[in-house]
Design a binder for these strands. Structure first.
Lengths: 230, 230
DNA sequence: GACAAAATATACTCAACAGTAGATTTTAAT
DNA sequence: ATTAAAATCTACTGTTGAGTATATTTTGTC
């Protein structure tokens, strides 16, 4: 039958015979909703069973739908994987851009970056884990596109550190690898988070920010700064 | 034809018609050698392409051998995976036991543990990575056996910390999670190591030891201690 | 309510791959 | 040299799963 949508039901409908444009709009929304539901279920399955260990039929079954349905939204199985992998990177990049666009000291920008991106990574944990695990199974085009976003991320962090050093906010010294280390810290957050199992998201994020600051020699997190993070 | 052995050739043969027991012995050695070569190639392939992404025929081809050959050494594909996964844990446990058996202060034992186990983990990188990636594909029996070794590892570390605290060598306080954190540090070493790509094994190991010491509040690594590590 | 178009399902194809039965070669001892 | 046993291969089976051609249902429009 029809695709199993979110538990929110959404029986809502503006029933008057209103203009086409509205209907078109609704339709488009429906399409992306369905696409997203496919990605949600696929993400959960890939996360639990791995990419190769998951069949397209399984994804379909979860949605109470059949295989060709999936194939009308994605060219092939690998396209689903690519979409999932891209989600994590894209959102991280969006968050980073937003943080860097806001004004503030470099120190503040770094703190915010770690906190916000860290938060996003924890929330999108499965995407990030799937990406690191299954990267090698992407076709070259997808791999390239995603990798270039990943590079932009690293470069922006490197520039932030560089600017901060020039402005005298961070300790001078060789920072060549720091951006990579910070990227690493963030990437491995999901593992730390789920491995410990007991720490709250907030605690983990505070830990991340403090580690990041130590890494580039920007000192401890002050109580005031702590209070500013929610 | 015959199994492609190590590049060392090994045409050596004590040619005299010596006693059976020697021949028997040689034969047994050959068997384990072959088994190990299968594991070596499988490890490389699983590491690069994942477990599901690797066929038994591929493993056979690498050894210039056929599939039934493999199946005469392993019950099935999953048994190969289990053997690989077990290698990492078993060797880590061996190293840990040896370190803990040697006398020395608790502080020294911790330093040695981190250094030696860390070294082993870097060397056996692929096994460790494969284990963390493919764990879920093991059958319950294998998973249980391996997990119990993993537990013994964690418990011994926990005990080391505990003893060290009681002896006043480590800072008192809640250490409930520290063993897990240390286990985590060690587990993620391969990723840090290969991700950075530029750091030497030694540098990474020094970093590990220092992180471990900080974690349990045992202070910095002294120059003397550094000198003692090779 | 009829009809075109869109959405979704049924029922298949084809290839890849784990695992095996039985033939063939190699080894080692007499 | 002969022969039994061990080692290894050839050639197969059965299944699974990605991807698709075609039928059916649903939706929207007149």
């Amino acid at each position: 039958m029809s695709l199993k949508l979110d538990s929110t039901g959404n029986t809502a409908a503006d029933h008057d015979g209103s203009v086409k444009s509205i209907k078109r709009h609704l339709k488009k929304e429906l399409l992306t909703l369905k696409r997203n539901r496919i990605l949600e279920e696929a993400t959960e399955l890939f996360f639990d069973q791995g990419y190769s260990g998951t069949t397209v039929d399984e994804i379909a079954a979860r949605l109470q739908v059949t295989k060709p349905f999936i194939y009308s939204y994605f060219k092939n199985k690998e396209a689903i994987l690519a979409a999932i992998c891209e989600t994590g990177i894209s959102e991280a990049l969006d968050v980073l851009r937003a943080v860097l666009a806001a004004k503030g000291s470099y120190r503040d920008q770094l703190i915010q970056t770690l906190w916000q991106v860290g938060d996003m990574v924890i929330v999108r944990q499965p995407c990030v884990v799937i990406y690191t695990r299954e990267m090698k199974k992407l076709n070259p085009d997808d791999a390239q596109r995603i990798l270039s976003k990943r590079s932009e991320f690293d470069q922006r962090i490197a520039k932030l550190i560089d600017d901060g050093v020039k402005a005298g906010e961070f300790a001078a010294g060789p920072h060549a690898m720091d951006a990579i280390w910070i990227g690493g810290l963030i990437s491995w957050l999901p593992v730390w988070y789920s491995a410990s199992g007991k720490l709250s998201k907030k605690d983990v994020l505070f830990g991340l920010v403090e580690a990041g600051l130590k890494l580039i020699g920007a000192g401890q997190l002050t109580d005031l700064e702590k209070a500013g993070l929610n």
